[in-house]
């Protein structure tokens, strides 16, 4: 069995693939035997082995890894120093800008969540308050014009046919204000009927009063006029 393996014919590519490990002594016994048995068939491979051996023999006799070894000698010290510094800066917290920024971002995020959470809560309270309003309340809120009538109802103001028409009183006051004292006097003296008609427009004037004016002399009229001047017309 062993003889069969050793006698296997290797092609040039297979020989080339085994060549470096053969030169550097890293082939197992079986592969080494196979390689050596086939070597006689490949003179170019034999030449390549000589070339590689001459160069790498020199390389192996030298300390080729010395520069790397020298340069990496203090690596453990540097690594431990950096590890310790990073540990202390982690405990230093905010002093480390790499940590400070994410921490600040998280804090701002937290504050925003709390703020908007509170806003949402107050909205929910408002909604809860609205839910206990009556249908009429909601109608009033939706239609502000009805609000006045709702207030009136709540303080029991009753409207009736006999109630005072405030708009007429206002109109009457305006008219009276426009008439000067002399105008009234002249009107009464020249044409008492005209005054009666004028005053009758205000519904509250007694027309019999004008008949009585006709029988008054000048002196009596003046006296009456003076009394009227002092009277409150609304009373």
């Amino acid at each position: 069995m062993e003889n069969n393996t050793e006698n296997i014919r290797l092609n040039e590519n297979q020989m080339q693939e085994l060549l470096p490990d053969f030169v550097f002594g890293r082939l197992n016994d079986s592969d080494k035997m196979k390689f050596e048995n086939n070597l006689q068939f490949y003179p170019e491979i034999q030449q390549e082995i000589k070339d590689v051996q001459s160069v790498f023999g020199k390389l192996q006799s030298m300390d080729i890894e010395k520069p790397i070894r020298d340069r990496s000698r203090n690596l453990s010290v540097k690594v431990n120093d950096k590890l310790n510094k990073r540990k202390s800066s982690i405990y230093g917290g905010f002093l480390n800008p790499k940590l400070a920024m994410p921490i600040i971002a998280i804090l701002i995020g937290g504050l925003m969540i709390v703020y908007y959470g509170n806003q949402k809560k107050s909205q929910e309270h408002l909604i809860a308050d609205l839910q206990i309003l009556t249908e009429q309340d909601i109608e009033t809120i939706n239609n502000p014009d009805d609000e006045f009538s709702l207030i009136e109802e709540s303080i029991n103001i009753q409207h009736s046919e006999n109630s005072v028409d405030y708009s007429d009183i206002t109109q009457f006051e305006d008219e009276i204000n426009q008439i000067t004292e002399s105008e009234i006097k002249n009107m009464a003296l020249k044409n008492p009927k005209e005054l009666s008609v004028y005053l009758s427009n205000f519904n509250q004037f007694d027309p019999t009063f004008l008949d009585e004016l006709n029988i008054l002399n000048e002196e009596e009229f003046q006296k009456l006029y003076e009394e009227l001047k002092n009277e409150d017309i609304n009373s």
């Binding site: 590519n13 080339q16 693939e17 085994l18 060549l19 470096p20 490990d21 030169v23 390549e48 070339d51 590689v52 001459s54 160069v55 790498f56 020199k58 390389l59």
Partner: peptide
Amino acid sequence: LKANYFQAVKKLAVYLK
């Protein structure tokens, strides 16, 4: 990999000869 290894060794040998 074996082919790459051979090529690398061969090139280095030529370069350092």
